[in-house]
């Protein structure tokens, strides 16, 4: 008998008393009771609590703010589907403008190697959705967010989030995500509580998380 058959048989025998399948109560909050304003405020509060830096600007100022945030950064990687206009205030690639970063684009045609990513200072991605109550930003691997590896290896992650994509509670975000997409849920920079259960930020994942919220 295969292990599979054996285990399934064991389970069948263990459940010989045929326990009832209970109805699942779902009385927890599944939709937001907050205004968009309140959600934004709550998200900022949570992210700051996690020691992320948060910047809220009108959507029209996205490119300018990004250029400001990336000034002094030597190199940046972006996913191929990142909205072009967000990078429009950066000097075009090839110009040797001191203080503006070299931008590498990670795409299905040209995937950066681990070593290349390790040499990059920062990554800029979009986000799929964010949960204000828990301060969580979800990436789902779509072209504006890229492969999981690009938002992991560089030491600084600049994440651009549209205010319209902020929900209050986790069930709202889960409903918007595609389960089978490769996902990373991010709540602040990497951290550990392994030493005396005190939280300290900055371990293996990006040690700096900047969140740019576009209104």
């Amino acid at each position: 008998m295969s292990a599979r058959e054996d285990i399934l048989n064991r389970i069948g025998a263990a459940l010989r008393d045929a326990p009832a399948v209970p109805d699942i109560p779902r009385n927890y909050r599944r939709v937001s009771a907050m205004t968009a304003e309140q959600r934004l405020e709550q998200l900022v509060d949570r992210l700051v609590d996690y020691k992320a830096s948060v910047f809220v600007v009108p959507a029209a100022e996205a490119a300018g703010k990004l250029a400001e945030l990336l000034a002094g950064t030597a190199s940046v990687v972006v996913p191929h589907g990142l909205p072009q206009e967000w990078l429009s205030a950066l000097p075009p690639a090839g110009t040797d403008d001191a203080g503006s970063p070299a931008v590498a684009v990670d795409s299905p045609q040209r995937r950066l190697t681990v070593a290349e990513l390790d040499a990059v200072d920062a990554v800029v991605t979009a986000a799929a959705v964010a949960v204000s109550e828990t301060g969580t930003i979800m990436l789902d691997g779509s072209p504006s967010q890229g492969r999981r590896i690009i938002s992991l290896v560089p030491d600084r992650h600049v994440c651009v989030l549209r205010a319209a994509d902020i929900v209050e509670v986790l069930p709202e975000a889960v409903a918007r995500l595609e389960a089978t997409a490769p996902q990373t849920w991010i709540s602040g920079p990497s951290a550990t509580s392994d030493i005396e259960l005190e939280r300290v930020e900055g371990v293996h994942g990006p040690r700096t998380l900047d969140v740019l919220i576009l209104q």
Partner: peptide
């Protein structure tokens, strides 16, 4: 914590 820093799916 309200949420752990990283969850992978």
């Amino acid at each position: 914590e309200r949420m752990n820093p990283y969850t992978s799916l």
